[in-house]
Simulated assay, not measured.
Amino acid sequence: MSLREVAMTGIATTPFGKHLDRTLGSLAAEAVTAALDDAGLTPGDVGSAVFSNAAAGVLSGQEMIRGQVALKGTGLEGIPILNTENACASGSSAAHLAWLSVASGQVDVAIAVGAEKLFHADKQRSFAAIESGTDLSLNRDGEDVEGGSVMMGAYAAAARAYAAAHGDITEALAAIAVKNRGFAADNPHAQFRAPITRDDVEASRPVADPLKLLTCSPLTDGAAALVFTAARPGDRVRVAVSTLVSYREGDSVVERASAQAYRRSGLAPSEIDVFQLHDACAYAEMVQYEQIGIAEPGKGAAAVLEGRTGRDGDAPVNTDGGLLSRGHALGATGLAQLAELGRQVRGEAGPRQVEGVRHALSVNSGGWMGGDYATSVATLLVAA
């Protein structure tokens, strides 16, 4: 089937952080209104909507029709509304479906909306919601973090195995945290913006060796929305390709998703000007340097220590602060990643703008199957 060219014409993110006084619907509505305004469209122009949320079922009990409930009052009532729940990759999965609905010719305008409220009076409920995105049938020896996140235990176990094979990565993990906070300092929607140092990282509370508090993404509330339209003259950002893959024993979903994106777009990793990677912890970002082709196997630590993934490097990563500093609002995360890349391609990223961006890649992954993510979505944007 031939696909139409699709543009990303509307971009919006709410501030990320602790929004105890806000409802999920109010956050979603804020993002919808801003994204449609950015696209110069009204709710009546939208042919379909895809709503992304990962944790409301556990935290609030709202299941099955989350999008229909959250989008009440936005003007989107009555149109097809799909709900996506795909762990931490829920947002990019929503973007994938919205893009596909336009690319296939089903509609001319689609909106992807992601919203999440992770803060809860009982923090263990929040951790339980996150844990529900892991394969509960697996033995968790070595993964549990007392009073905390099973996911961070899994990342820590992987980081220890990596360090045993390739050498100490403590400095690299701290460098990633410092780098991402430096980018977040210039992002008014980031949850944490105060600059940090390597000493700050080292002094922060241990989570699971070798991870410290400042090398782990925080609980976050927030929303993001993107508008996709059939490409027209004058559009500035085009979706070159979106690929979605799921867990398969024996290989990496990040490698497969990004490899498919490179192959279908005809671009190589060296041709990508800016990246968004799923830095649920600093180790996750570092190992993905290798999985997406920024660094050779075993050389991920060198990539950040040499400055390659920083503001002035050849492969800047997570220019909005990433999950570590922007915050990880599960269902909104993948959309927020793409919002940042859209701004970079437009040249509208302000002080964090990378010069001359024409190609931008987001890789958003989610869930955990014991040795790898359950799913991964790679989306490649290009200047129109």
Rank of each mutant, 00 (worst) to 15 (best):
S2R: 14
I11V: 15
A12N: 06
A12I: 09
K18F: 14
H19V: 09
L24I: 14
L24G: 03
L27V: 11
E30D: 15
V32I: 11
V32C: 05
D37T: 14
L41Q: 02
G47V: 04
S48V: 09
S52A: 15
Q62T: 14
E63T: 15
G73V: 09
E77A: 15
E77H: 14
P80I: 05
T84W: 05
T84A: 13
A89P: 00
L97V: 12
W99Q: 02
W99I: 01
S101C: 09
G105E: 07
Q106T: 13
Q106E: 15
D108Y: 02
E116I: 12
L118I: 08
L118V: 06
H120E: 05
A128S: 13
A129F: 03
A129S: 11
S132G: 10
G133Y: 00
D135N: 14
L136A: 14
D141L: 11
D141N: 12
D144H: 08
M151Q: 03
M151K: 00
A158L: 14
R160V: 10
Y162I: 11
A163Q: 09
A165H: 13
T170L: 09
A172Y: 02
A175C: 11
I176C: 09
A185F: 07
A194W: 08
T197I: 11
D199N: 09
V207C: 04
A208Q: 01
C216T: 08
S217H: 06
L219E: 00
D221C: 07
G222Q: 04
G222R: 00
A223Y: 01
A225Y: 04
A231W: 05
P233E: 14
R238I: 08
V239L: 07
A240T: 10
V241K: 02
S242H: 01
R248M: 12
E249Y: 10
E249K: 15
G250W: 12
E255A: 15
A261N: 02
R263Y: 08
E271H: 10
D273P: 02
D273L: 04
F275R: 02
H278L: 03
H278Y: 15
D279A: 06
C281M: 08
M286R: 05
V287Q: 02
I294V: 13
I294K: 00
G298R: 12
G300K: 03
A302I: 07
V304E: 03
R308A: 12
R308T: 11
D314W: 10
A315I: 05
P316A: 10
G321I: 04
G321E: 04
G322I: 04
G327N: 05
H328D: 10
A329C: 13
A329K: 02
L330A: 11
G334I: 04
G334P: 03
L335A: 06
A339M: 09
L341A: 04
L341R: 00
L341Q: 03
L341S: 02
R343E: 07
R346K: 13
R346N: 07
A349N: 04
P351T: 12
R358F: 06
A360K: 00
S362F: 06
N364D: 07
S365I: 06
G370S: 11
L380V: 08
V382P: 01
A383K: 14
